[in-house]
Deep mutational scan, measured.
Amino acid sequence: HYVEVNGKKIQATSAEEAEKIAKKFAKIYNATVLDLGNYYKVT
């Protein structure tokens, strides 16, 4: 599981952790979290 933010991949140990990381970055960048199955993308 990982999160992609601005083209950078951030490794996460679980889907739950990946979701938390994605939501945190989405809040910082006022962005949207896309759940793409095996990873989250912040756009």
Rank of each mutant, 00 (worst) to 15 (best):
K8E: 09
T13Q: 13
K41H: 07
K41R: 09
D35M: 11
Y29M: 12
V33W: 08
V42W: 03
K9A: 06
N30Y: 06
I28G: 04
I10M: 06
Q11W: 15
Q11Y: 15
T13I: 11
I21Y: 03
V5W: 10
V42S: 02
E4L: 14
G37T: 03
K23M: 12
K20D: 09
N30H: 15
E17A: 11
H1W: 15
F25S: 02
G7K: 03
A31I: 06
L36A: 04
A12M: 09
N38P: 09
K20F: 09
V5K: 01
T13V: 12
T43K: 06
F25Q: 03
N38S: 13
L36C: 15
V42M: 03
E17M: 10
K23F: 10
G7N: 05
E16V: 10
K24F: 15
T13E: 13
K24V: 12
E4N: 03
I10H: 06
Y40W: 14
V33S: 01
K27N: 09
Y2A: 03
V5Y: 08
A18L: 02
V5C: 10
V33M: 07
Y2N: 01
K24C: 15
T43C: 13
Y2I: 07
A22Y: 04
N6P: 02
K8A: 08
E4W: 08
G7L: 03
G7F: 04
Q11M: 15
N6F: 15
G37K: 02
E4G: 00
I21E: 01
A22N: 00
N6Q: 08
E16A: 13
I28D: 09
A15T: 07
V5A: 02
K20A: 13
Y2M: 04
G7S: 04
Q11I: 14
N38K: 09
V42Q: 04
I21V: 06
A31Y: 08
L36I: 05
S14T: 10
T13N: 13
L34V: 14
G37H: 04
A18K: 01
Q11F: 15
E4V: 12
Q11T: 12
I28Q: 10
T13R: 14
K24A: 13
K9Q: 08
N30G: 14
K8R: 14
V3W: 03
I10K: 01
N30T: 04
K41F: 12
K23W: 12
V42D: 05
K8T: 11
K9I: 15
Y40E: 04
K41V: 15
I10L: 07
I28F: 14
V5E: 00
Y39T: 06
V33E: 01
